[in-house]
């Protein structure tokens, strides 16, 4: 986290330097506060990095990191596929994939529970956001074409 913040702080200061200097009369300008934030971030992170170098770090639990990475990929894939596949299909697949990842099904009954859950949850969320709140949920082009 320290290295991430250090790089972020440095990048932020570079972008601040590139901002235009013009401002309204009397206004301290658009650069002042970002400079203060960037300098403080770099200073505190540098202090922290030095402090942490003196401490022994707990071992990384790669199994847990791997599980989080896999769950994150499923979520990112879902968001990315919402427009191409349409809300209902993408959501159904996301629910099945996530539930099966959280608890791998070991029988036909377990699969049936997950599929039933996916269908009911997709319908409920679709009804709540699409119909009750009138949100424009993504609709796939192929589905639009099918409906004419």
């Amino acid at each position: 986290m320290n290295w991430f913040l250090l790089a972020l702080g440095a990048g932020y200061l570079y972008l601040t330097y590139q901002l235009p200097s013009r401002s309204i009369s009397g206004d301290p300008g658009v650069k002042l506060m970002p400079y203060v934030i960037g300098v403080l971030t770099v200073a505190f992170t540098a202090y922290h990095t030095v402090q942490d170098l003196r401490k022994s770090r707990p071992p990384v639990r790669w199994r847990s990191v791997g599980a989080v990475a896999a769950a994150s990929l499923i979520m990112l894939a879902y968001v990315g596929l919402m427009n191409p596949l349409g809300f209902e299909l993408a959501t159904g697949l996301f629910l099945i994939a996530t539930a099966a990842f959280f608890k791998p099904p070991d029988s036909a009954r377990a699969w049936a529970v997950i599929i039933l859950f996916a269908v009911l949850a997709t319908a409920a969320v679709s009804l709540l956001f699409g119909t009750v709140f009138n949100v424009n949920l993504p609709e796939a082009r192929w589905l639009q074409a099918l409906r004419g």
């Binding site: 769950a71 979520m75 879902y78 968001v79 919402m82 427009n83 959501t91 996301f94 629910l95 996530t98 539930a99 959280f102 608890k103 859950f117 949850a121 969320v125 956001f129 709140f133 949100v135 424009n136 949920l137 993504p138």
Partner: peptide, 24 residues
């Protein structure tokens, strides 16, 4: 079952974030 609850929380989180501006 906690695995179904967690799945539902993730779905509502993503749809909730999307819904305000219909923004992917």
């Amino acid at each position: 079952p906690p695995y179904l609850l967690s799945t539902l929380v993730l779905l509502l989180s993503i749809i909730g974030a999307f819904a305000l501006e219909s923004s992917v």
